[in-house]
């Protein structure tokens, strides 16, 4: 079981191998998610994105929001998914901590759960401006876990 290295910030590995971590980029931040399925890896990547903004444990998953995206390949789908999440955070002034994701045939349907930003309780650090195509990679590793990652602009 690989623990987050000193270069990364992440959380403990779940029994199924699902976890997220950050990886360094000089000006910005890399987000990476692992999961037993593509959808799970995408959900973990979303978690990693939220963790740039604040501690995800501080967010109550009470209000659901639906997200749909479609892309010609899984890497473009990851960028679309993260950008859809960034849009919902910005436009609704909300933060999210639960991500129910389904992916089939290049289409993603998700319900994300969260609440309105409360600056005192959530103590948000920084806004995320957008997901980039830099260090973008979605693949199934030799240990059968899916890995999804890219750099986001902060």
């Amino acid at each position: 079981m690989k623990q987050p290295s000193s270069e990364t910030r992440g959380q403990a590995v779940s029994p199924g191998g699902a976890r997220w971590e950050h990886f360094p980029h000089i000006a910005d931040m890399g987000v990476r998610g692992y999961g037993a399925s593509l959808a799970e890896a995408f959900a973990q990547t979303a978690y990693a994105l939220i963790a740039i903004i604040c501690e995800p444990d501080r967010i109550e998953a009470t209000v659901p929001v639906s997200i749909r995206c479609e892309a010609p390949d899984v890497e473009l789908l990851l960028v679309d998914w993260l950008n859809a999440l960034i849009y919902e955070i910005a436009a609704r002034q909300m933060l999210f901590s639960r991500f129910d994701v389904e992916i089939s045939d290049g289409r993603l349907e998700a319900t994300i759960w969260g609440e309105a930003v409360d600056r005192r309780r959530h103590r948000p650090v920084v806004e995320v401006k957008g997901a980039t195509y830099t260090e973008l990679k979605v693949c199934r590793q030799e240990n059968a876990l899916w890995r999804a990652q890219c750099v986001v602009d902060v």
């Binding site: 679309d80 960034i86 849009y87 910005a90 436009a91 957008g130 997901a131 195509y133």
Partner: peptide
């Protein structure tokens, strides 16, 4: 602000 960020996102996709 958010307007510029979203324009960047929108056109990175369209320009692919």
């Amino acid at each position: 602000r958010g307007l510029g960020h979203q324009i960047g996102t929108d056109f990175l996709k369209r320009m692919q």
